[in-house]
């Protein structure tokens, strides 16, 4: 995982119109941001367009980059805002737009042939995470999956770092309770 300091070094070079630093940042951050965008839009081509917009805009505003602020958080925030805007501007959504994206969750195929304890736990956890309150889930996922620190998450979610802390602690507490229940149910069965 790329270090936060790399991002800040890129930021100051990009500020000075350094094309190479821009390229390095692009190549390094592209796939994580792509995956993040796909959380919102579910369509690779749409996500590609969003990312093109984000990087082009970043280059446009390079002279206004604030070196004190996290560039990584800025990228995530731009991807999030553009994705949400796009979703909002497309409403009402045509049904045939949505159908393919929802299929995977409806299928719910058995995850593996031999559901060993760990695989099962992973699957359970994914479901529990999905049913967390939206803000808690967002904070947790940005921390766990995107590797953002609390200040960066606060930037993306536009709230105070303390609030991020609270969200993640609450999320973990909810998950712990579910984990405990799940474990005792399994033990009773055995």
């Amino acid at each position: 995982m790329t270090k936060a300091s790399d991002y800040q070094q890129w930021a100051s070079k990009i500020r000075a119109s350094d094309q190479k630093a821009f390229h390095d940042l692009f190549v390094d951050s592209y796939q994580p941001l792509m995956r993040y965008a796909l959380n919102f839009v579910k369509d690779t081509d749409v996500a590609k367009d969003i990312l093109q917009d984000v990087y082009a805009h970043l280059w446009d505003i390079r002279d206004r980059l604030d070196e004190e602020k996290s560039l990584k958080a800025l990228l995530y925030r731009m991807v999030k805002n553009r994705s949400i805007n796009l979703i909002r501007s497309r409403r009402p959504v045509r049904l045939d737009d949505v159908a393919p994206a929802e299929q995977p969750s409806e299928e719910m195929s058995p995850v593996s042939i031999r559901p060993g304890g760990d695989d099962l736990l992973e699957k359970q956890l994914s479901e529990w995470i999905e049913s967390l309150p939206p803000r808690q889930r967002e904070a947790f996922e940005l921390s766990r999956f995107e590797g953002l620190d609390h200040h960066e998450i606060a930037d993306v979610m536009e709230c105070a770092p303390r609030t991020v802390n609270n969200h993640i602690v609450s999320a973990l507490n909810t998950l712990r309770v579910q984990l405990k229940q799940w474990k005792s149910e399994r033990e009773n069965r055995e």
Binding site: L38, T44, K48, L125
Partner: peptide, 15 residues
Amino acid sequence: KARRKDQSGESAMDV
């Protein structure tokens, strides 16, 4: 043990 649920992450790697 926390994993992303959807498989969309996979297609990110194809780009």
